[in-house]
Nucleic acid binder design. Structure first.
Length: 264
DNA sequence: GCTTGGACCTGATTGC
DNA sequence: TGCAATCAGGTCCAAG
């Protein structure tokens, strides 16, 4: 999409999680996408019109590219399905279709001149693979926090871009109990946790993501990282490290999988 | 100010 | 087989 114009936007419903932008199709028609970027779980398309199209996939959103060309990022599709909500008809003949059964995703238009003030990104913590993230950063961010470390790592203002799966996996790798209070993590534990977070994210990206039911890449292919989970969705199975049984608990309304034998 | 739990919505799975 | 209950990868907001 980068460098190309959106010839036409096809909007098939008024809202996703939030209402789609007013006069959405009109505002993006013929706009060139000057830059396509990602911050945390947010995608941003900087348009030649002076606006930024900000997009989030929620839990079940996906983009699929199809069209005239063939290659790694293209595949042929049949007709539109019930959950194809927004279709970008691009210069060059390709279409980029946003599909989202649960509609937890969203799209917003925001002035580029004021992009830094976009509220949903203003409070974001550092990216796991950025220079701003380190064990020393975790020491500062977690000290004094009363919430369980599992909840703190899901908090995007502490660290950006970690979801439920990768928090469970990173805590397992670093041998830290998800129930441990955040303020007891700084020090030795944080020095194990920071590299574990880096490794899980880097490996998941290399594996093409995690496909449990909905996720697929833009070529329609599934991710492979789900085959490498150590604890996530392995309730009742033996821990790969110590043999104890993997448990499932609910924290802040989300499933947590962990090994009670070797996560302390 | 921090933390938790409910809400948003649909589809797949599980249990009766 | 059919129905109801439960659960799911994220984020926001009200209430405690």
């Amino acid at each position: 999409m980068e460098g190309k114009r959106i010839l036409r936007l096809e909007q098939r419903r008024a809202d996703l999680r939030f209402p789609l932008p007013e006069r959405f199709a009109e505002r993006v028609a013929n706009a060139r996408i000057d830059r396509l970027a990602r911050q945390a779980k947010f995608l941003s398309a900087h348009l030649s019109t002076g606006e930024v199209l900000i997009m989030h996939l929620g839990m079940t959103g996906r983009f699929t590219i199809s069209g005239q060309r063939t290659g790694d990022f293209h595949h042929e599709t049949g007709g539109l399905t019930a959950h194809d909500h927004v279709i970008f008809h691009m210069e060059g003949g390709e279409t980029v279709t946003y599909n989202d059964p649960r509609r937890f995703g969203f799209m917003e238009l925001w002035p580029a001149a004021n992009f830094e003030a976009y509220p949903r990104l203003m409070t974001m913590g550092p990216e796991p693979l950025s220079n701003g993230f380190s064990a020393a950063y975790l020491d500062t961010a977690l000290s004094g926090k009363a919430a369980p470390i599992k909840a703190a790592l899901l908090d995007q203002s502490v660290i950006a871009g970690l979801g439920n799966i990768y928090v469970c996996e990173a805590l397992y790798r670093s041998g830290i109990s998800p129930k441990r209070l955040s303020r007891s993590v700084p020090g030795m534990r944080a020095s194990r946790l920071a590299p574990a977070i880096n490794a899980v994210i880097a490996e998941a990206i290399a594996a093409g993501g995690s496909s449990i039911s909905d996720f697929a890449g833009t070529d329609g292919n599934l991710g492979y990282f789900q085959h490498r989970f150590d604890v996530y969705d392995r309730e009742g199975e033996p821990c790969k490290r110590c043999g104890a049984v993997v448990k499932r608990i609910v924290q802040s309304g989300r499933s947590t999988f962990y090994c009670s034998g070797c996560q302390k």
